[in-house]
Design a protein around this nucleic acid. Sequence first.
DNA 1: CTGAAAGCGCTTACAG
DNA 2: CTGAAAGCGCTTACAG
Lengths: 357, 357
Amino acid sequence: MDKEFSNIRIVDIAKMAGVSVGTVDRVIHNRGRVSEENRKKVQAILEMVHYQPNLMARSLAASKKQYHLLAVTPSFVQGEYWEAISEGIDKAASEMESYNITITKLFFDQYNNKTFDDIIRNLLHEKVDGVLIATLFTDSVIRLSQELDRNEIPYVYVDSNIGGQHQLAYFGTESYDAGVIAARLLMDRLSSSSDILMARIIHSGKNDSNQGKNRREGFCHYLTQTGFNGNLHEVELKINDSVYNFMKLDEIFEANPNINGAVIFNSTCYILGNYLKARGMQSVKLVGYDLIGRNTQLLSEGVITALIAQRPERQGYEGVKSLCNHLLFKQNSEKVNLMPIDILLKENLKYYLNNKL
Amino acid sequence: MDKEFSNIRIVDIAKMAGVSVGTVDRVIHNRGRVSEENRKKVQAILEMVHYQPNLMARSLAASKKQYHLLAVTPSFVQGEYWEAISEGIDKAASEMESYNITITKLFFDQYNNKTFDDIIRNLLHEKVDGVLIATLFTDSVIRLSQELDRNEIPYVYVDSNIGGQHQLAYFGTESYDAGVIAARLLMDRLSSSSDILMARIIHSGKNDSNQGKNRREGFCHYLTQTGFNGNLHEVELKINDSVYNFMKLDEIFEANPNINGAVIFNSTCYILGNYLKARGMQSVKLVGYDLIGRNTQLLSEGVITALIAQRPERQGYEGVKSLCNHLLFKQNSEKVNLMPIDILLKENLKYYLNNKL
DNA sequence: CTGAAAGCGCTTACAG
DNA sequence: CTGAAAGCGCTTACAG
């Protein structure tokens, strides 16, 4: 690089422009109150020398400033998927504490759009400098985004992306490809005439998530492409009703003994896994998503064949970090940040459990 | 946490102890020249309030200090494995530039122990504040480590670990398990009575690396455990002699038509892949290591079935970072840092290529 | 609109 | 052994 310009300070710029450091500072930050003439002069020099602010000095000098962030994500009980995103947020929060950034986590019910709307109604009643949003309810998120735009408050998305908005950045995966990969993992271990069972969870509050829908599409696309000629069966299960689930599964497996593979497009793979384990059906290959405790346990026992993961901790962590970098250092990250789609087998699981970021 | 103590400064400590900030600073950094009485008084208060230094202020104040790091790794031509580690080092170097840390990369020939010894002989002729070492030549690395210990210069290992030394940290993988995983990936797609070909590269200068040996052991262990009853064949190839390689491979495949799987325990998987591709032998499953360009190309074409990767960029990056954190902030990382063992298929490859850290 | 000065929390000579 | 003072590069009132 231009080594000769690598240590230029504001005082140097000020001298070169024949103004004071205050004026240079005002130009750098567009604080106004500078004559057009001086602004131009300073701007020209800034560009000429490729001025790079000293970030340590900047944050030290501004260290009395307070920032307040909000993170709006689904609530969870211990061991559920959304806990991982929350952990990433906490990690970033604790790292940024010394910069006087505080972060408030607001939780909504992922099966109830209204709980999300209730939160965003009161969101701006106090001072907010940035918002991280889990984008489960598309329409509501768009409404929130537009309001944040009006108030010039930056925001980032995690989980799934939404086009046409002004989010600072998105951190998440390509769900469609995550579905393709599930199919690949299953079909590598099945003959193309085996039957496959696709399970889904039914909820009163909400239909399938975008994630689930996209994964399912990718999954089916792969099967079609690769000449799958078995039958696809579907079953609807309930999140908290094992008796019901076992009954339904008994029914469908008895009626279709050719089912040798199963998949479920969210983190509740353990429901199917527990059934297969209880019934001693080791021969059925099972693929699911997310490294939550109940899944990893069954993976390491060999009941689940493979899990697909998408670095939820990192989504939360980098989401918060990108807001902080924007606020503190005016540094913007990429607008779309796709996490790797990790393939977990029993054999490489342990190296992921301590390496979540 | 102790919120009440969260913003205690050196001046506060000084007042509480009835001394000057200079004395507090001397105690914090063990700079000596403090009476035992004052040292104790200050130390007690430091502990009582859980003093946390302000890192920004510290680095700003010390920003005139210069640090010089060394990175000793194998030389490479473009697209070879060691380029990735080097990229990670460069990334960290550019981030740390503003802290006045410079890093000099020294390269040795990975097939010639003497070139490593030549480097370490002259290593300490100038001022060095930390060293990153690629641990290919165990005995020489131990000798170097002991000399660094004598000079109280911190050092970190990458690639493979060595016990009994005082390295600040190690960044790398568990090669044995990486071998297990290769076997799992292959056997998931083969019948247990298929034959398997293990290829190795022969060099004049050096026998098999630790990495390669460990991976091979893990691989064979998995086969034994899972009741593999095909035959294992071995072939020795040359790194730059396609004519020779094709001849040897033609020979062995013709003699053993039951070979349906192949593996090679280093990054030269493309040699086998190019052969299989040229001969149109799509049915042979091939598993190898490392996301170098020639491998990823064949993976995306479907010639290579799976690649196993171990985040070399991150090894270099975090290795340098841990030296810097030690020097600048007296923060030490974990002593052993095992990278995830990533499983790459054609379908998830692209999400790793832009996510190397 | 402009500049001089104080301050952020730490480290570094320096005088005693 | 100890302390007062200057300085790191930036931001923030404040006076004009």
